[in-house]
Each structure stands twice: as C-alpha cells, then as structure tokens.
C-alpha cells in the first residue's frame, strides 16, 4: 500500500529561519520535512509521509490573512496530499490562530482531513475547536516530545478514515459534539447514581457539561468626550526605560502602573517595550506606536477629550495565562473606577 501523503505547516521559528525579526516572511514551500516534521515523520512510521512543508511568518499570516490563506491553499493543492497537518503551536497565539485558520481553509476547500495541535488557552483553540480536531498540548515547546506521538496517532486514524473516540481517548480538545451511544444502565439510573454521589461529596462526571458563556455586555457609551477622563492600557509591554519592575517578556506574572505626568509623548529614551513576542525595534524606537501618548496629549490640549488619566497600566500579553490577565485587570479596573476614569483605550500588539 502506498503511504498517505501529508503537507505540513509550520512557522518561521520552528523552521529555524528566525524569531520575531523574521515573523514577516511570506509563505514558502519546501520538499520533505523541516523542523518538527522530522519527529512527526518518524512517528508516522510506514503509514504516512510528509511530502512538503509550508513555512510562513506568524506576523505575515496575521496581517495578510486572506492573501496568505489563498497562497498557502494553492501550495497545498499543488501537492494533492491526503492530509494536512499544522503545528503544533503550543501557546503561541498568532501561530495557533494561523494553524487553525489554514486547517479550516484546507478542510473547507480541499475536503481532506486536517489536524493541528495547541494549548487549550491558545486563542486559536477557542476560535477553531468546533471546526477542527486540535490535539491538546502543554503550553510550551518543551512538550514537543509528548505532543508529536499524540498528533501522529490521531493523524494516522484520520487519514485512514477510522472512527475516532472521545476527546480524552484521542487527546483532542473537546469540540462540543455529542454522539449517541449505548450504555449498560438507563439514564434514570445513572442520574440517581450521580445525585447520590453528589450529596455524599463523592466524585462524578456529568454527561452533559453546561457551556460557559463569559461575554460581558457592552458598557454604556460616553455621553460627552470633551468632559471624559480617558485611560490608556496595553498588553504590548510598554514600560519606562529599563523596565523597573522587571515585567517578564513572556508569561507575565505582574503588571505595571506608571505615571504619565509631564510626558507629552514617549521616546526611546524614556520608554521601551518588555514584550518578547514581537519584533521590538519599532516599539522601542517610538513607543507611541503602541501606547499613543503623543496623540492623546494633543487631543487633551485641543479639548477633544477632557483629560488623559495620569497613569497607564501595562503588561506583556505573551503566553500570559488567562488567570493572571484576569487577576491584573480586576485589580486595576477598580483603581480606574475609583480614579474617576470614564472610558478606556486598550492597545494590543
């Protein structure tokens, strides 16, 4: 039997081309395996082979989604593969979003099975888990050795068209799909058992988890901008030069609150970015490109806004856990409120 042909998608980092300074490279295709494809190919053994690897910069994809998608689709099509695999992306947000988007595009346009892998908090997982099989990985590439065999095993089943088991059996992120199965005990009996376990504080597993909707209703609009006190906050890591509180370049454990008094604009001598997840040269040479203090001051002087709030709040949104992000912002939301702020601009890179 001939091997199933796979096209693999990775970013510039895993291709060994470079980090953030190379995140702008457009898609290219190389024959055979590159980077993590080597381990994947080894795990496929005799069943499948990677015929080509497509490499694209994370920022290029994020900033040129439609073009990048079209270009990559053409590349995939030219190889007429049996399957398409992207990543794994772990907790890299742009990479995960790109892996998800291109997998969905390939699935929708070429009708072949697709598979990717990422950490459950990767924004790409949330966006695409309903559409795709996404193998659940840990949050860093240190998990590569464990992630690859899981992806390979699921990929082989998918390529062969075998029936797939539940998320926990096959290591993919729950898609919210329910399937009819036969059980030994009828529903009423299982429900009573669950109830008895619950009242006795014993563990039980629900058969129907309730979906979690955590959308906050939009706050009321500002009535009069001319009188409004506006605060600016960022996940782009802008900090006073020297990063006095040592906010981490990734997986931030803290946020900073810094005084803008006396600053009509930010310069490379007063501020910089602590963010390790994008090419910092543009933000370092002109921090207003991330935290637009220059323009907000102009608008304040011209009376377009009432006042720019004295402090800005900042952290590095790079692999930072949802738990930490919620904790930071819960704290400073109360401060903003207490300081009489009327509206907030948040910038993200």
């Amino acid at each position: 039997m001939s091997k199933y042909k796979v096209v693999h998608y990775i970013n510039q980092f895993f291709a060994g081309i470079g980090g953030e300074e190379k995140a702008n490279i457009p898609p290219e295709m190389r024959d055979g395996v590159v980077g993590p494809g080597m381990a994947l190919a080894a795990a496929f053994e005799a069943d499948m082979e990677i015929v080509a690897t497509i490499i694209c910069g994370d920022s290029y994809y994020a900033e040129n989604m439609e073009n990048a998608e079209a270009e990559i689709l053409e590349m995939v099509k030219s190889k007429s593969p049996d399957m398409f695999i992207a990543g794994p992306a772990f907790n890299a947000g742009r990479y995960g979003t790109a892996c998800g988007a291109i997998c969905k595009a390939v699935k929708d346009n070429l009708g072949i099975p697709v598979l990717t892998g990422m950490y459950v908090e990767n924004p790409g997982a949330d966006i695409f888990k309903k559409d795709l099989f996404i193998v659940e990985t840990k949050n860093s590439a240190a998990d590569m050795r464990k992630a690859i065999p899981k992806m390979a095993a699921l990929a082989i089943k998918m390529a062969k068209g075998e029936e797939l088991g539940s998320p926990s059996e096959e290591n993919y992120i729950e898609r919210g799909v329910r399937r009819n199965i036969f059980r030994e005990k009828r529903g009423a009996e299982r429900a009573v058992e669950m109830l008895v376990a619950k009242v006795n504080n014993k563990p039980f597993v629900t058969e129907y988890p309730m979906p979690v909707f955590d959308h906050v209703a939009p706050a009321a609009a500002l009535k009069d901008l001319k009188k409004a006190k506006i605060a600016v906050v960022t996940s782009g890591g802008i900090v006073p030069k020297g990063n006095p509180d040592h906010i981490e370049s990734s997986s931030a454990s803290k946020y900073g609150k810094y005084d803008l008094t006396g600053f009509d604009y930010l310069t490379d001598e007063t501020h910089e970015t602590a963010h390790g997840g994008y090419d910092p040269c543009y933000a370092n040479s002109n921090p207003n490109r991330v935290l637009p203090v220059d323009v907000l001051r102009d608008l304040e002087k011209e009376g377009v806004i009432g006042e720019l709030h004295k402090y800005f709040y900042t952290t590095v949104g790079n692999g930072t856990s949802v738990g930490n992000a919620v904790k930071f912002s819960k704290e400073y939301a109360q401060e903003l409120l207490a300081d009489g702020v009327d509206g907030v601009i948040m910038t993200s890179t």
Binding site: V216, A217, P218, A219, A220, A221, L222, V233, S329, Y332, A333, Q334, L336, L337, V341, D342, G343, V344, I345, M346
Partner: peptide
C-alpha cells in the same frame, strides 16, 4: 474592565 461598567 467592562464588567465594572467602564466602556473600553
């Protein structure tokens, strides 16, 4: 931030 009633 929006939860405390501030538009963002």
């Amino acid at each position: 931030i929006e939860r405390v009633g501030l538009p963002i």
